[in-house]
Each structure stands twice: as C-alpha cells, then as structure tokens.
C-alpha cells in the first residue's frame, strides 16, 4: 500500500489537478482586474468589480437563492426524516417500491423536471410564485436528504431505541429524546448539502423563474449569455470563496468525501 506513484503518474496527476483548478483560478484572477474587459491583472489589482456587485440586481437574486434553498432544504428534510424512519425501521409490504419511488427523482433529468414544473405551475395557476419553485427544488434534493437521513439512522445502534422503549418511553418520546438528538448531526450535514444543491440549481429553475423568483444562478446564466464581463467573474470569485469556506467547515465536522458521495450534477 505504501508503494509510491511513479514520476509519470505524478506528472499526470499535476496536469489533472491543473485542469480541475484552471477555470476556477482564472475566474478568481479576472475578478481583480482594473480594466473594463476580461483580462488577468498583472501589475495593478482592483476591487472595482466587487464594489460594482453592490447595487446590481445580483444582490436580490442572491437573497432569493438563499430563501429558496433554505426553505427547500428544510422542507425536504422535514418529509425525508419520517420516510427514512419508515423504510429503515419497519418491514412492510411495498417498502422496496417506496424506496425506489423516493429515489426516482435521480433518474429524471433536471430539464425534464423543469418542463414538468413549468407546465404544472401554469395549469395550477402558480406561475411567478416561489412556492412552486421551492417544491420543485424539494423534489430534486429529497433523494439526497433521504439518503443522508437513512445513513444517519443506519449508523445508530438500534438497541439504543429499544433500551429507551424498555425504560417506559413511548414511540414518540423515543424519537424526540433519543433518536433525534443522535441523528441530528447527520441531518444537519444533509441540510447543508441540500441547501448547496438547491442554491446551485440552474437547469430546472431556469424554466420556471419569473422576475420575482430569479435565483442567482439563473440571473448569472442570463447575464453570461448576453455578455461576459469582469463583474460576473467577481460574483463567481465570491461564490468560490463561500464554497471554500463551507468546505472547510464541512471537512472539520464530517469529512467532506463522505458527504459528496451523495451529490448530483448539472
């Protein structure tokens, strides 16, 4: 196991890491340009583009993203925890099918979900309403919150619940006083991951976003398709900084790779 990677492997590795980091580093560099066009600052650095963000419509978009993500992550967790308890703690007819159903949003491309949600909201009369958007995000992130809730339950000694039961606690008391406090750290991790997932979601959101529900990724996408200037780079750099901060926190608390095992993509 302690066999080293050869020089060729290390060169490949360096190139791979450079490939991974290049676009992110470039964005961060461009964000500090003093010029009005995309360029990498060499002699002079400036914060003018960061200052330009304030007062732009990216700020309200950011807050919409935060609200939507917080609401969606909380709702997803709220419905996932009972579902996780049902499927992890009980044997009942239809259990397998139910688990498959709960995980099925993973099978449906976000573009399809976006179209479906747009049609649904038009039919039900929810257009330009954050509720529909939030519920769409709940659908997308529920498989992940469910998996993390299941993992938290699986990592817990079942006999601890039985012990509480034998001491006279009712099912509800067992959950409130024993199960919940024990799985809470796992649930918090799930919430955070769901929040990020919802915050970053573009493909579905772009279909249903209205002026009142334009999230940050959607606003950035619309902006970029028109033109690319150093201001979007500055926003991107700020988001990268936030992600690094989050990563540091999550690595401290949970070990990041375990959490990322459950994250989806585009």
């Amino acid at each position: 196991m302690t066999r080293r990677n050869g020089p060729l492997a290390l060169v490949f590795h360096a190139a791979f890491i450079a490939f991974i980091l290049a676009p992110l580093v470039v964005v961060c560099l461009v964000a500090f340009t003093p010029e009005a066009y995309l360029s990498i600052p060499t002699t002079r650095w400036s914060l003018r583009w960061f200052k330009a963000i304030w007062g732009s419509d990216f700020i309200p978009a950011f807050w919409i993203s935060v609200y939507v993500a917080a609401a969606a992550a909380s709702l997803a967790l709220l419905v996932s925890v009972p579902a996780a308890i049902a499927t992890a703690r009980f044997q009942f007819p239809g259990r397998e099918a139910l688990v498959a159903y709960f995980l099925s949003p993973l099978m449906v491309p976000h573009v399809v979900l976006g179209v479906a949600l747009l049609r649904f909201m038009a039919e039900v009369g929810l257009t330009a309403n954050a509720f529909g958007l939030i519920m769409g995000h709940v659908v997308i992130i529920m498989p992940f919150t469910l998996r993390l809730a299941l993992a938290a339950l699986a990592g817990m000694d079942r006999h601890v619940e039985w012990a509480a039961g034998s001491l006279g606690a009712s099912d509800l008391t067992v959950f409130r006083r024993v199960t919940l406090p024990i799985i809470l750290p796992g649930l918090a991790g799930g919430w955070l991951l769901a929040f990020i997932q919802s915050f970053d979601e573009l493909t579905m959101t772009v279909f249903v976003a209205s002026p009142g529900t334009t999230t940050l990724p959607v606003r950035m996408f619309q902006y970029i398709t028109d033109n690319i200037d150093p201001m979007v780079a500055a926003i991107s750099a700020a988001l990268i900084g936030l992600a690094i901060l989050l990563m540091a926190v999550m690595e401290r608390v949970y070990g990041l790779e375990r959490l990322l095992a459950g994250k989806g993509g585009d």
């Binding site: 601890v160 039985w162 001491l167 606690a169």
Partner: peptide, 29 residues
C-alpha cells in the same frame, strides 16, 4: 407494548444514550 412491560434490559452493545450523562441515562426510566 414494550414500554409497558416493566422489564429492565442490558444489551450487548450496552445501548447507552450517547448524548446524556451517566445520571441522565440512569434517570431516564
């Protein structure tokens, strides 16, 4: 129901409540 049987159990894993002190564990019942 199990919580009405008045039976004390010591489990193989001990199944202590990890988030409670010794006193809180013992006082739970």
């Amino acid at each position: 129901k199990p919580n009405r049987r008045n039976i004390g159990i010591v489990f193989q894993s001990f199944a202590l409540f990890p988030h409670m002190t010794v006193t809180e564990n013992v006082a739970f019942g």
